[in-house]
Simulated scan of single mutants.
Amino acid sequence: MYGEQITEISAYKERPELSKCLDNLSVGDNLVVHKLNRLERSMVEMLEHTALIERGVAIKTLNTPSDRTSEH
């Protein structure tokens, strides 16, 4: 389990715990987040996370019924 608490807008560029988490994901893993907007702060980040799906990682959110997986 990884977690960060960021209090400054400028600090969003540096998210070391998220980086560690993403580096450790592999095929068949599930990345679970509370809200998708907590994971993706920009279009660039969204595209990076789309690459996770292409790698076989499922992104699941706790606050919405739909998941981002390659199976849909």
Rank of each mutant, 00 (worst) to 15 (best):
37 N>K: 10
57 V>H: 06
14 E>G: 01
68 R>D: 00
53 I>Q: 00
5 Q>W: 06
46 M>L: 02
56 G>A: 09
10 S>Y: 13
21 C>Q: 15
54 E>D: 00
65 P>W: 04
70 S>N: 01
4 E>T: 00
3 G>N: 05
20 K>R: 14
27 V>C: 12
11 A>Q: 14
66 S>P: 04
26 S>V: 06
37 N>A: 12
65 P>G: 13
61 T>P: 04
47 L>W: 02
23 D>W: 09
61 T>A: 10
56 G>K: 04
64 T>M: 14
60 K>C: 14
26 S>A: 10
10 S>N: 07
2 Y>G: 00
57 V>G: 14
8 E>C: 11
67 D>P: 01
14 E>D: 13
33 V>R: 06
19 S>T: 15
16 P>G: 03
24 N>A: 12
8 E>F: 15
65 P>H: 06
46 M>C: 02
36 L>Y: 07
47 L>H: 03
71 E>D: 09
35 K>R: 05
23 D>Q: 13
14 E>F: 07
41 R>I: 02
28 G>D: 14
4 E>S: 01
35 K>W: 07
65 P>R: 03
69 T>D: 10
25 L>C: 06
27 V>P: 07
24 N>I: 03
55 R>M: 06
23 D>K: 15
30 N>Y: 15
11 A>G: 15
34 H>K: 09
21 C>L: 08
55 R>T: 05
20 K>E: 11
16 P>H: 03
1 M>N: 02
48 E>P: 00
12 Y>T: 04
44 V>E: 09
55 R>N: 11
3 G>W: 06
43 M>W: 07
43 M>G: 03
19 S>N: 06
72 H>P: 13
72 H>Q: 15
26 S>W: 11
13 K>Q: 12
43 M>I: 10
11 A>M: 04
29 D>P: 02
70 S>K: 08
37 N>R: 11
51 A>W: 08
48 E>R: 13
68 R>H: 07
49 H>Y: 02
58 A>P: 01
44 V>S: 15
50 T>E: 03
42 S>Y: 03
20 K>S: 13
15 R>D: 00
1 M>G: 11
10 S>P: 13
56 G>L: 05
50 T>S: 03
10 S>T: 11
25 L>I: 10
7 T>G: 05
30 N>P: 07
50 T>N: 00
27 V>W: 03
49 H>E: 01
44 V>P: 04
37 N>W: 14
49 H>P: 00
38 R>H: 15
62 L>E: 09
19 S>D: 09
22 L>A: 10
3 G>Q: 02
41 R>W: 12
43 M>Y: 10
27 V>Y: 15
44 V>H: 14
58 A>Y: 08
14 E>C: 13
71 E>H: 07
72 H>N: 10
11 A>I: 02
8 E>N: 14
41 R>Q: 14
22 L>R: 08
57 V>L: 04
62 L>N: 10
61 T>Y: 06
59 I>K: 08
19 S>K: 09
45 E>I: 01
12 Y>M: 07
28 G>S: 11
60 K>A: 05
36 L>T: 07
55 R>P: 01
6 I>K: 08
42 S>H: 14
7 T>V: 11
66 S>T: 02
12 Y>N: 02
58 A>R: 09
41 R>G: 08
63 N>P: 01
68 R>E: 06
20 K>I: 02
60 K>L: 06
38 R>W: 02
31 L>A: 08
18 L>G: 05
10 S>D: 08
7 T>C: 12
26 S>I: 09
14 E>L: 04
